[in-house]
């Protein structure tokens, strides 16, 4: 597969390590009242869609960027690639 890195351009996916569903960005607040329940959900349940899947790829053999990739799991076609740090900020993550 080819991942079109937002900074570096098209790169072979073999340079990357797959890190799973990008829902992992939405790490629950560990101080929430129902933190345990939320962490079970966060840690163990997945949408696992047959279709567009938003997922994390780590450019381990490249520039070490985490990317958020939208890829169709039935065709492997990739429709969007973003820097994970940008996406994380967009989802309200900061410090």
């Amino acid at each position: 597969m080819i991942i079109n890195h937002p900074i570096l351009g098209p790169r072979d996916s073999a340079e990357f390590t797959y890190m799973g569903d990008a829902a992992l960005l939405d790490r629950p607040d560990w101080q929430a009242k129902d933190a345990l329940l939320q962490f079970v959900d966060y840690g163990y349940l997945r949408d696992n869609p047959a279709g567009p899947h938003i997922e994390l790829w780590y450019h381990e053999q490249g520039d070490r960027s985490f990317l958020v990739v939208t890829r169709d799991t039935t065709t492997h076609q990739i429709s969007s690639v973003k820097l994970a740090s940008d996406v994380a900020r967009g989802r309200g993550r900061s410090k």
């Binding site: 997945r46 949408d47 696992n48």
Partner: peptide
């Protein structure tokens, strides 16, 4: 392998990735 697809029809999320 189709568990995720099928059980989604019952609105279930599973501890499974395909």
């Amino acid at each position: 392998g189709s568990s995720g697809r099928l059980m989604a029809k019952a609105s279930m999320r599973l501890p499974i990735e395909s």
